[in-house]
Lab assay of single mutants.
Amino acid sequence: VTLFVALYDYEARTEDDLSFHKGEKFQILNSSEGDWWEARSLTTGETGYIPSNYVAPV
């Protein structure tokens, strides 16, 4: 499993987005949709879409 870490804070803009804080780690569930990836936060357990340019591989 490839994990990603948040480089910046992000505040959700829609109900499908996932808010997160810098340093939070994610498991990517689906990265085939372009710039927005479906991810699960390893901190909160919540699932939603995150901007791929806000995260980097651990």
Rank of each mutant, 00 (worst) to 15 (best):
R13W: 08
L42R: 04
F26L: 08
E33N: 15
Y49S: 07
I28Y: 03
L42H: 05
W36H: 07
Y54Q: 05
D35V: 12
K22E: 07
E46A: 14
A12K: 09
E33V: 11
T43A: 11
T43M: 10
F26S: 00
E38F: 15
Y49I: 09
K22R: 11
T44V: 02
I50D: 01
V1K: 10
G48E: 00
L42W: 08
A39S: 03
V55H: 01
T47I: 14
D35N: 11
F20Q: 00
A39K: 00
Y54D: 01
L18C: 02
P51N: 08
V55Q: 01
K25T: 13
S41D: 03
D16E: 13
I50E: 00
S19Q: 05
R13H: 11
I50L: 07
D9Y: 04
G45P: 01
V1S: 13
E38Y: 15
A56K: 11
E24K: 01
T14N: 15
G34C: 11
N53S: 14
L3E: 09
D16R: 15
V58F: 13
E33T: 12
L7I: 10
F20H: 01
L18I: 11
T14H: 15
T43S: 13
T44P: 00
T2D: 11
V1P: 13
A12Y: 02
L18K: 02
N53A: 14
I28F: 04
A6F: 01
E46R: 15
Y49C: 08
W36T: 06
P57G: 05
P57A: 10
Y8N: 06
A56R: 11
L3K: 05
S52P: 07
E33Q: 14
A12R: 08
N53T: 12
E24I: 02
N30T: 08
H21L: 11
F4Y: 15
Y8W: 15
T2P: 11
N30H: 08
Q27N: 08
V58K: 04
P57V: 08
A6M: 01
E15Y: 10
N30C: 08
E24A: 06
Q27F: 15
T14L: 10
E33W: 11
Y49L: 13
E33K: 15
I50Y: 00
S31P: 09
F20M: 09
K25I: 15
S41R: 15
K25E: 08
G34T: 14
V58T: 08
Y8P: 00
Q27K: 09
D16W: 15
V5F: 10
H21C: 13
G34I: 13
N30R: 09
G48D: 00
L18D: 00
T43R: 14
G23K: 02
Y8D: 07
Y54F: 11
S19A: 07
L7P: 01
L18H: 02
E46W: 09
L42C: 10
E11F: 10
A56N: 06
Y49Q: 09
V1D: 12
A39P: 00
S32K: 11
F4I: 03
V1Y: 13
G48Y: 02
F20L: 05
T14Q: 10
G48R: 02
Y8H: 09
T2L: 13
F4M: 08
W36Y: 11
S52T: 07
D17P: 02
R13S: 11
D35A: 12
L3D: 05
A6S: 05
E46M: 14
D35R: 09
T2R: 09
Y49R: 14
R13L: 12
S32G: 10
Y49A: 05
A6N: 00
S31C: 12
W37R: 02
A6I: 01
Y49H: 07
S41M: 06
V55G: 01
S19F: 04
L18R: 02
P57F: 07
E11Y: 10
Y54K: 06
S52E: 04
K22N: 04
E38R: 12
A56Y: 09
V5G: 03
S31E: 09
G45F: 08
Q27T: 11
S32D: 11
A56S: 09
G45S: 06
S31L: 10
S31R: 13
V5K: 05
L18Y: 05
L3H: 10
T43D: 10
G34F: 12
E46G: 09
S32A: 11
K25G: 04
P51A: 04
E46F: 12
S52H: 08
Y49E: 03
G23R: 03
L18S: 01
V1R: 09
F4H: 06
Y54S: 09
R13A: 12
F26A: 00
D35T: 13
R40V: 10
E24D: 15
D16K: 15
Y10K: 03
R40Q: 09
T44N: 06
T47A: 08
S19H: 06
V1I: 13
N30P: 04
W37M: 06
P51D: 05
E33Y: 13
R13K: 13
S19L: 02
V1W: 13
D9S: 09
E11T: 13
I50V: 09
S52D: 02
V1E: 13
F20Y: 01
G34M: 13
Q27S: 08
K25Q: 12
Y49F: 13
D16M: 14
P51F: 06
S41I: 07
W36Q: 07
D16Q: 14
S52K: 14
L29M: 09
G45Q: 07
A6C: 02
E46H: 13
T14A: 13
Y8A: 09
G34L: 12
A6E: 00
S41A: 07
F20K: 00
S32M: 13
D16I: 14
L3N: 06
S19K: 04
L18F: 08
E11M: 12
S52Y: 08
L7G: 02
G23F: 05
D17K: 14
I50M: 02
D17H: 15
E46S: 10
E24L: 02
Y10Q: 01
G23D: 06
G48W: 02
P57H: 06
V58P: 04
E24W: 09
T47E: 09
H21Y: 14
D35P: 10
V55Y: 01
Y54A: 10
T43I: 10
L7R: 04
G48K: 02
V5R: 05
T44S: 10
D17E: 15
F26D: 00
W36F: 12
L7A: 03
G23I: 01
T47D: 04
Y10F: 10
G34S: 14
K25V: 15
S52Q: 07
K22C: 07
P57N: 05
F20D: 00
L29V: 08
Y8T: 06
Y8L: 08
F20E: 00
I28P: 03
D9V: 03
E46V: 10
W36I: 08
W36V: 08
G48F: 03
S31K: 13
T47W: 09
V58L: 13
Y54M: 10
L42K: 04
N30K: 08
T47G: 04
Y10A: 02
V55S: 01
I28L: 07
V1H: 15
P57S: 07
D17R: 15
F20I: 06
R13D: 09
V55M: 09
T47R: 09
W37P: 01
S32P: 10
V1G: 14
R40I: 12
I50Q: 00
P57C: 06
L18M: 13
E24T: 08
E15Q: 12
A12F: 02
R40E: 06
I28M: 04
F26E: 00
G23W: 06
Y8G: 05
R40T: 12
E46K: 15
P57K: 09
S31N: 13
T44L: 03
R40P: 00
P51V: 02
D9L: 03
P51M: 07
D17V: 14
V58C: 10
A39G: 05
E46Y: 11
N53Y: 10
L18P: 01
D16F: 15
E38W: 15
V58I: 13
A6V: 01
T14S: 14
R13I: 12
S32V: 10
T14E: 09
A56L: 08
T44F: 03
T14V: 07
T43F: 11
G48V: 02
N30D: 11
T47L: 08
D35H: 12
A39I: 03
V58D: 10
F26N: 00
I28E: 00
E24P: 00
L7M: 09
